[in-house]
């Protein structure tokens, strides 16, 4: 395939592989904690960060990183304030993120191609600098998740018992919010802010249909995301499509097949 010799395609693949593993791993914890909409809230906050960067001449990717981290901390604070209605926290942060993004975009008159690349993802927009940031932060996040996997499992499954095991639950919750924020920010370059949450949730949804252990949930989720991203990049290159949409459609198609197979096997019980 001669298109592999194109440098931006290589960068897109590198970013795609890292993004897919990162976002689908974090997605497992997010879905199991019944926080599926957190990706949407954070990605809209990241859009505000992009707009902030464009308005003040800061590299937009940095803006996205900072804004998603702030949004994640806000969600944790609001979740505690609205204990029984924790989804309120997600709705508030998402609305504030969109509001802030729209205001800053209109202030900076930045309805341009670069903004659209952050909205829908882009193959050509991934720069060497992006790859370096993604590589460094992405590997740090993945390593820390592996190191903390026992704590994360315990807190995700049963917070109260985790506390009685001596696990610092509040700290783990904060850590999980921060890595979710970083994963979203790192993924917006290739998938786009509007669709990053789908890549966080759909691979986990597929793996929940077929997995026979917690370990397998991660493996299948990673594989579905990886396959969707790689195939999505190839298709979007040849048909000149936005990669975010293509990737999400592929993973949705895999989910539909998984549900169909499960339905047929169980006799639609």
């Amino acid at each position: 395939m001669d298109f592999l010799s194109i440098s931006f395609i290589n960068r897109a693949f590198a970013a795609g592989v890292l993004t897919s593993i990162l976002i689908s791993t974090v997605g497992v914890f997010v879905v199991l904690r019944r926080m599926s909409m957190v990706g949407d809230s954070l990605s809209h906050a990241s859009l505000a960060g992009v707009a902030f960067g464009m308005l003040f001449g800061i590299y937009p990717f940095y803006g996205a990183l900072v804004f998603t981290v702030i949004a994640a901390i806000l969600i944790e604070i609001l979740r505690k304030a609205f204990k029984k209605y924790s989804e309120v926290a997600l709705a508030v942060v998402m609305s504030a993120g969109i509001g802030l993004a729209v205001v800053m975009i209109s202030l900076g008159k930045s309805y341009n191609r670069d903004l659209f690349s952050y909205l829908f993802g882009s193959l050509i927009a991934v720069s060497e600098k992006d790859i370096k940031i993604m590589g460094f932060l992405g590997l740090a996040v993945i390593t820390s998740i592996i190191a903390l996997n026992r704590e994360l499992f315990a807190v995700t499954f049963d917070e109260e018992s985790a506390k009685i095991s001596g696990i610092p639950v509040n700290l783990i919750n904060l850590y999980l919010s921060l890595v979710t924020a970083l994963s979203v920010a790192l993924s917006v370059r290739i998938v786009g802010t509007l669709l990053v949450s789908a890549l966080m949730v759909i691979p986990t949804a597929v793996s929940l249909q077929v997995s026979k252990s917690f370990k397998m949930v991660f493996i299948i989720s990673n594989l579905v995301a990886l396959f969707s991203v790689i195939l999505g990049i190839i298709i979007s290159y040849y048909f000149d499509l936005a990669p975010g949409g293509t990737i999400v459609l592929i993973s949705s198609f895999i989910l539909a097949i998984a549900l169909l197979i499960k339905g047929v096997r169980s006799g639609w019980d």
Partner: peptide
């Protein structure tokens, strides 16, 4: 400690019995 199963515990959690029992063996990072 065994909490009430009707509470906030997800009894459909996608893990094996071994994984669940193993998760409570915790004595530090």
């Amino acid at each position: 400690y065994i909490p009430q199963l009707t509470g906030e515990i997800n009894t459909g959690f996608p893990a094996t019995v071994w994984e669940i029992v193993d998760s409570n063996y915790y004595n530090g990072f």
